[in-house]
Design a protein around this nucleic acid. Structure first.
Length: 109
DNA sequence: GTGTTGACCCCAA
DNA sequence: TTTGGGGCCAACA
């Protein structure tokens, strides 16, 4: 944990996201003590495309539940498909019932 | 060692 | 109410 980079920390939190739930970049950043640097979380997710990391990046959205990162997937619809496969409804690239599906990493801690 | 970039967030007009 | 701009910090060239 001492030598792990900031990205590793983000991946760790992301892996804790329960199936069928989602969280936000800001929530993860805050959990790491960098509430003002939520951008780093998104950047970390960009590197999370590696399957070995087992990071459910599709469960991470911005604060309004918008699938901002879908454009970085193989196909623009893949992120939405993955979320819908877990029972999360998507409409206009936005997560429906976002408030209910939202999972705060701080709670798990 | 310096500068640019970025899957964001918050505040002020 | 909507829109615009600043900030923040780590990784990369």
């Amino acid at each position: 944990m001492t030598k792990s980079t900031f990205y590793e920390q983000v991946y760790e939190i992301a892996r804790l996201i329960p199936k069928g739930r989602i969280t936000t970049y800001g929530a993860i950043a805050k959990a790491l003590g960098l509430a003002k640097s939520s951008r780093m979380v998104g950047t970390a997710m960009l590197h999370a495309h590696d399957p070995r990391l087992s990071v459910p990046a599709h469960r991470v959205v911005n604060r309004i539940g918008l699938l901002t990162g879908k454009h970085h997937y193989d196909t623009p619809t893949q992120m939405q498909e993955l979320l819908e496969a877990e029972g999360i409804a998507i409409k206009d690239h936005q997560v429906q019932n976002f408030k209910e599906l939202f999972w705060d990493p701080l709670i798990d801690l």
